[in-house]
Each structure stands twice: as C-alpha cells, then as structure tokens.
C-alpha cells in the first residue's frame, strides 16, 4: 500500500481514537508526519487503567497480529521511526513473551507500565519510557510535536492500531469493542457497531436484566450512572458498560469504591482534585452528603482541575446523586 493512501483511508472511515478522547486518527497521524525531525516515535498504548475495561487485553489475546500490523503501517508511514508497546503490568506478564516473538525483526519494543492510572496518559507514558516518574507533562507541547525524548510521537490505543490494520485491508465495518460486565449473564468483550445505543448493545448481547437495574457507562470509575430509561444513547468516552442490581448494591459502598480509586490514582498536585477527593471521602465516611458543598466541589473539579482525572471525577458522583439519591 502506498504510504499516503492510509491517510485517505483513515479519513474516509472516520476512525477516531479509542481511548475515550475521540480524536480523529488521520489528523493525529498527519500532525506527526508534518513535523520535521530526524526521528519519530510510535507508542501503542496498552495501559488500559479504567476499571471495568478489558477490551485491549482481549484484543492482545486474540488479535495480536492485527495490532502489530497496524503498528507496522505507522512505522512505514513515518520516516525513521521506532515503536513501543506500553503494557499495563498484568498484560505485560501475559503477552510480552508472545509479542516479543512476533516483533522480533521489527523496530518495536515492548515495555511495562510504571505507576497507576495517570501513567496511562500519553505524556506520562513518554516520561515512563524515558525512565522518569510517570506523571503527565503540561500540554502543549503535545506528543505529536514533542513526545518521547522530545521527538514527534504518535500515541494510539491498542484498539486503534487493530482498526488501522483492518482499514488497510478494507475490512473495517465501523465497529468497536465493548467491555460489558456486572450483574449480567453474558459478560465479556463484544465487537459491535459503534453507533449502537447502550440499550441495543445490552439487548443484542442478551444482557438486559429482568430486575430493577442501572448502569455505569463510559468506565468503571469515570463513567456516568444511567437508569433504564436513559439508555437510548451512545456511550460517551470508553466503550465500557457495567450493570448493577439496584436492590443488591449499596450506593455508599459503590461511591466509596470510586472515591478510593480517585484518591489512589490522582497525583495530588492540584487543589480541586486533591482536596475535593478528600472532602468527598469525608462525607462518604459520615454518610452525609452536603449538597451545597458537593455542588461547589463539582464546579471547581469540572472547571479548574489540572488534568482530566479531576474533571471526570464529577461524572459518576453527580449522575448517581441525581438519579438514585
């Protein structure tokens, strides 16, 4: 395939990033291509840190060849480039051996994730691979301009590379991978049309419960809470759905679980996220949610947090409180 061709194809298929950001893939590739530099880097992000999300693991398990094929296309597309596959610790343990074998003669390295959730952010990955503490860098510059070791760097998700390979072979059917879990009969990863609503996804996978339920869609920590009558929509963010039985679940426990995730995973740098998560924990401990305070916390988290983590913290709490309390 001619190199320029791939851009046209990606553009035509409207492929977007599969880490939740929905950035047009062709544009990202183009941006890195346009930068003038003696070398460039490619990072395949397999850090998958959002709870309830396991589709990248599924893809690495079942379709490693396609993922590598996608990376190879990027290697050919970008002059003088080298690639890294960045894997969260358990994926590294499970797949590194196989991937190393499959990439033996290629400019592809397999590296293990350092640190927690935030170290899956694209600039944090650059820091990690450079051997530094894996925390996000300020942006701009974006990795497309100055990424790994200061060189233009293309960071894409495992799934994105999978689809690039499919698009190159004209096998793309506008699908994506859904991670579905919770109180259901058929948990797992499903490859389904991306346009499908949450309801349709649950129906087609035979996962609509016959009890009173709600779901968390978009990630097991960052996703929003939706009631059965709110499912006629597509997922915002990562294609992850978790189903809960309303009778069985203790909402405070659930919120505590999220909160623990944020307390553990945030970097404690910025005021709203560090103190906000702590004050929410305090309220959960006392089982007393103060609405005015929560509103204020959500406001500063949403409007002023340093990185997206603080901002997404608002989603689950706000929607749970509105819908269920």
């Amino acid at each position: 395939m001619k190199r320029e061709n791939i851009i046209t194809k990606l553009k035509k298929e409207k492929l977007t990033g599969r880490s939740g950001s929905s950035f047009p893939t062709w544009l990202k590739w183009q941006l890195v291509k346009k930068e003038k530099a003696e070398k460039k880097f490619i990072i395949c992000n397999g850090s998958e840190g959002e709870p309830g999300t396991f589709k990248d693991g599924f893809i690495l398990q079942n379709h490693p060849n396609e993922v590598i094929e996608g990376i190879k296309i990027a290697l050919e597309f970008l002059d003088n480039s080298t690639a890294y596959i960045y894997l969260r610790k358990d994926y590294y343990k499970r797949f590194a051996y196989k991937l190393k074998k499959l990439t033996r003669n290629l400019a592809i390295n397999i590296v293990k994730k350092q640190g927690g959730y935030l170290s899956g952010e694209e600039t944090a990955i650059c820091e990690a691979i450079e051997g530094k503490v894996a925390l996000p860098r300020p942006k701009p510059p974006y990795p497309t301009q100055k990424g790994l070791w200061g060189y233009p760097t293309l960071v894409n998700n495992v799934e994105t590379f999978y689809w690039v390979a499919k698009i190159a072979k004209n096998e793309y059917k506008n699908q994506k991978f859904f991670s579905i879990s919770g109180d259901i009969k058929n948990p797992g990863v499903f490859q389904l049309p991306e346009k499908w609503t949450i309801k349709k996804v649950l129906q087609e996978t035979k996962n609509i419960p016959n009890f009173d339920f709600f779901v968390q869609a978009g990630g097991g920590a960052a996703g929003e809470i939706l009631l059965p009558n709110q499912l006629n929509r597509q997922i915002k963010g990562i294609a992850t759905i978790i189903v809960f039985n309303r009778k069985k679940i203790d909402l405070f426990q659930l919120m505590k679980k999220w909160n623990n995730f944020f307390l553990r995973e945030n970097c404690d740098k910025c005021t709203p996220c560090r103190e906000g998560a702590f004050r929410i924990a305090e309220m959960l401990q006392k089982k007393k949610l103060d609405n005015k305070t929560l509103k204020d916390l959500f406001f500063v988290l949403d409007a002023t947090s340093l990185c997206p983590l603080g901002k997404i913290m608002v989603n689950p709490f706000k929607s749970l409180i509105e819908n269920l309390l």
């Binding site: 300020p138 701009p140 740098k269 910025c270 005021t271 709203p272 500063v300 949403d302 409007a303 002023t304 947090s305 340093l306 901002k311």
Partner: peptide, 25 residues
C-alpha cells in the same frame, strides 16, 4: 510553573473550562 494551586484561573471566551494564567500562553 506547576499550575497546581488553581488560584490564578481566568476565563477565556469560547472555552468551557477555566485556564491557569501562570501556565497558559
């Protein structure tokens, strides 16, 4: 610049989130 206290925030027309003036060009 660490842009961590989030006190120097300002509003930019057309942007939803506030930005920290100490770190935004």
């Amino acid at each position: 610049e660490k842009a961590s206290c989030r006190i120097c925030v300002v509003e930019i027309k057309g942007k939803n989130r506030l930005v920290t003036s100490c770190s935004t060009e």
